[in-house]
Design a protein around this nucleic acid. Structure first.
Lengths: 146, 146
DNA sequence: CTGACTGCAAAATCTTTGCAAAGAC
DNA sequence: GTCTTTGCAAAGATTTTGCAGTCAG
């Protein structure tokens, strides 16, 4: 896993390349995603950053804007929950898919080589240029089945 | 594939079982999904039904309510597109997954036995009770690569 | 300095809800 | 007749945008 200083550097490089500025708010959001393993809504991120940094001012719009930027830069990635919006996570980990618990909302990550390969083959079969793929298994986690 | 009269009967049975009423609007939405192979937003469905039936009154709220009902009844199913909402299709076909073109929005359906099996195995491995699963391969379709 | 970024509030989307009238059974 | 459904418009929820002031480089 990448270290935080390296991640920060990567982000700053991307910003520089695009004549964008490195701001306190952008750093806080990056740091939040780095430090908090999991999947968060923009609202979650906004609220938790405010809680942890009562002295800093940050607006929800900035969170949305920054998350979009981070996703475009391939530093973060999101999974969507239909009408309930998206959740973001740091996107530098190895690609993986998700098991999502319907009851408690818990998200388990997994990676399966066989599925990855089949996906490539399917895309090829349809002459489809695959950019991304997501797989969600929805159900009940071990705890919630009790 | 199920015939329309049979589908209609199935729907009516479900309605009766739940003391719900069979209305013109509900039938139109069911018929629309049956006759139109593809994936539609609630807005699409609303608009197209109105176009095809200028004499009939139908509100967008009814479309939403009915789609929810159809999905709960497992007659329709939806795939979500993040903030951009959901698209619905008749859900009685054999389970399948989707290739989604980023450019033109086209959706190609596919089914792969190997992936299906692996999903079962993964769920088992995590003691996860699988209720549903979706897989989306996002990219560029054959046409849009040109 | 200059142009990008920010927070705010307003706007835009998409979906749901409250309600009185209409319709199914 | 009774109870559900409907359309409408208003309300919600989530996300985006316009703008004037602020800040990074």
């Amino acid at each position: 896993m990448i270290s935080y200083p390296l991640l920060l550097e990567k982000f700053q490089t991307i910003l520089k390349e695009n004549s964008l500025k490195f701001t306190k708010q952008r750093e806080l959001i990056l740091k939040f995603l780095y430090e908090n393993d999991g999947h968060f809504t923009p609202e979650d991120i906004y609220r938790l950053i405010k809680e942890e940094n009562p002295n800093i001012n940050i607006g929800i719009a900035t969170v949305y804007r920054t998350l979009t930027l981070l996703e475009t830069s391939q530093i973060a990635s999101s999974i969507s929950f239909g009408v309930q919006g998206k959740k973001y996570e740091l996107g530098l980990k190895k690609h993986h898919d998700h098991l999502i618990c319907n009851q408690c909302g818990d998200i388990i990550e997994f990676f399966d080589e066989v599925i990855e390969e089949r996906q490539e083959e399917i895309a090829k079969k349809f002459n489809f240029k695959m950019i991304d793929h997501t797989m969600k298994i929805v159900g009940l986690c071990e705890n919630c089945q009790k």
